[in-house]
Design a protein around this nucleic acid. Structure first.
Lengths: 226, 226, 226, 226
DNA sequence: GATGAATGAGTGTTCATTCAT
DNA sequence: AATGAATGAACACTCATTCAT
């Protein structure tokens, strides 16, 4: 069995992000400048403390311009993170769907997964990290700077999805534990992402983290067998 | 009827005598009401979004009254959490000091700790949980509602203390991993606290969580022995 | 003739100030402490910026106590400066009354005053300085810290009295000039008082200042004779 | 040598102020109305006691509007006085620079300046008065209403500059006297300005004032020659 | 004599948002 | 496509003063 983590088909989801081409006017980069300034401000202060005034100022535009391109503060934030958010969520869902299929088959055949090698999981982890680090800022906004915005529950959503998956193997231990495990798994990634700046360093850290999480996880799965 | 009248009047007088014994202070429970209102507001909206106006309103006083009892918004918040904060930190430090001593002896004697039974840890965990749940609201304020206040780094402080401890056993794996492990451990507690409302349920969950964390932890400690 | 400045009979006016004996309670120095604290606060921040809160705090009393002894902020300030204010004003008036008498006689006899020696004026100046420096703080409050209080026009009052005197010798030049000369004379003293901390240094400075003022003054008096 | 007073090249500095013509803006005189209202309020109550609310009200706008045009209260005040402040200071500096040059040459040639006619000084004085009266309100704000603002030390600055100049001729008498003389000279102007409303009347007063100050000044310069 | 409590109006400032042009 | 202007409500905080006890 594999660790419950989002992965797979990064290429697919990249396509979701590709449509950044603005079809309208070409000679104006105002929107771009606004988005850039907004990203910096949101990253620096978080959604709530970010000031539209200040964003406009550092973009060299007036507030009216901002409101031409964006409905309101929430829309501005959403414009920065929507694609990555959607990409991440659907990526995750598909991955888990695949895992569920494998789990079903496993159950049917009665064979346990080979747990001695965790190479697969680490590999998967590296793949997803690559995706996350490729959209470092946006992911950061989603995970750590979204309080007060429409996305303030993003992490909860991710946890919820993970929870569904984990309840397959750990359901018998009750919802609270499943929730806790899921939270820990997701949080592990979030923490690394927000504390380890380079993908390379994150990659080096990953095997240890994976080992930790797997030991814990299988400790629960095998609880009644000891 | 007569008898009834008599009986009735006795009851009446009893009730009159029952008046809440308030020694000292007479006319004023204002501070109490303010603290209560503040606690609710802070819990509901977090430090930053809490409005002193709204607190005063729901306490039934004017803003001036608030400023008679509290220096400023920070002081109001601090009044709610200071004791628990200090209690928690010193409790933690003492606990770790004890652990360090055990660790030193263990090293000297060359004997590994008996890791098959984790009764001790669970017991300690339950003790801490009991304290935390006894001050549920305050702990919540400290851990989840303190952003913007003087206590916004409280969790970081706790993690930092834990980190020092963990670096004894895991130092060789680098700071990043030690930090991650510490973060995970603390987060485990925080998560349970903020998601499991009753101490009883938390107690039931604890052994599993402990098992998970221990497996992971010793997995790292024994990394090179496998 | 003498320079138009307040002086004389310091001893007389000292008696005005002597009634500081509080007949009431003796065992409580609260009022004293309040006055002391108030003096410091007023000197430091001026009447307007002084905070009664802060005064009470540094006196170690509550605001209620202050309002037992003093009607309001103005009354508190007045209690500090009233005696010196009255002393100063009546001293000034008497001095000028004397001068006026001398001036009348001089006019009658047709003799000009001996203007070569200004020893008298300097002597008078030193006397008044001694009085001012004996009540340094109160004078400071009156002259420089009274804005917003009932005494904010104190300096104007002094100037007005001086003006009356000067108009005897300079009246023919118009009110504006008389006012200007009077303002300059008074301001000279005020400036020295607030910039030269020790009476000794002020005494050394005085002859030069007197010479300056006298030259200017007699230059005007003799204007049409040149 | 000439009396130490700011003068000269009024025409030059006028040019600095001339670029107030902003032809662009169309529909809004709000800023103008705010500035006017602010000027009145500041003149009436002084910087500290002025209320932005009250300014906005009398300008017929909301506080938000004020903050569109001005950063804060200080900025509003500065907008009223900056130009005149700068003009005044640089005017003063240049004048003194010119005087210093003359002083040096005089020293070299050993010739004393012709002190019998003070026509030059009076002429210079009238010129500067013309400038001051052309910006009557702003000068008033600077000199008498700036307490609490960024300009509260403006008069001190002017005195300090004058002091440097005076120390050339009077340095031997010590700092205290130089300071006093400078203070008196500047105060003379300030006093006239704030007490004589019309430039015409001020002009008539000026020769007498100049005579007074010159007599005093040269009395000191010649102190040891008598 | 003095406390402790409370008032209520006031302060400067910031904010997301709107809208005519 | 974008500007410049303006709104209006909200914010934390300070103040002199009052009053029952």
């Amino acid at each position: 069995m594999r660790l419950q983590l989002f992965v797979q088909s990064v290429r697919m989801h990249n396509s979701v992000m590709k449509d950044k081409t603005i079809p309208e006017k070409r000679d104006s980069d105002t929107k771009e400048r606004l988005l850039k300034a907004a990203k910096n401000e949101f990253l620096e202060k978080g959604y709530q403390d970010a000031s539209l005034r200040s964003i406009c100022k550092s973009a060299g535009v007036t507030t009216g311009a901002l409101y031409f391109f964006f409905k309101d503060k929430d829309d501005l934030f959403e414009s920065l993170v929507r694609d990555v958010s959607e990409g991440l969520l659907s990526m995750l869902k598909e991955h888990f769907a695949g895992e569920r299929k494998a789990f079903e088959e496993m159950k049917k055949s009665g064979k346990l997964p080979p747990r001695t090698e965790m190479a697969d999981d680490v590999f998967a982890g590296k793949k997803i990290f690559h995706y996350l680090y490729s959209h470092y800022d946006e992911v950061n906004l989603l995970l750590k700077k979204s309080k007060g915005s429409l996305y303030e529950n993003f992490t909860d959503q991710v946890v919820a999805i993970t929870e569904k998956q984990n309840s397959l193997a750990l359901g018998k231990y009750g919802k609270a534990l499943v929730h806790w495990v899921s939270h820990m798994q997701i949080n592990s990634f979030v923490h690394i992402l927000t504390h380890v700046k380079s993908e390379k360093q994150a990659s080096e850290l990953l095997p240890y983290v994976m080992a930790y999480l797997q030991k814990g996880f299988f400790g629960l799965v095998d609880w009644d067998k000891k």
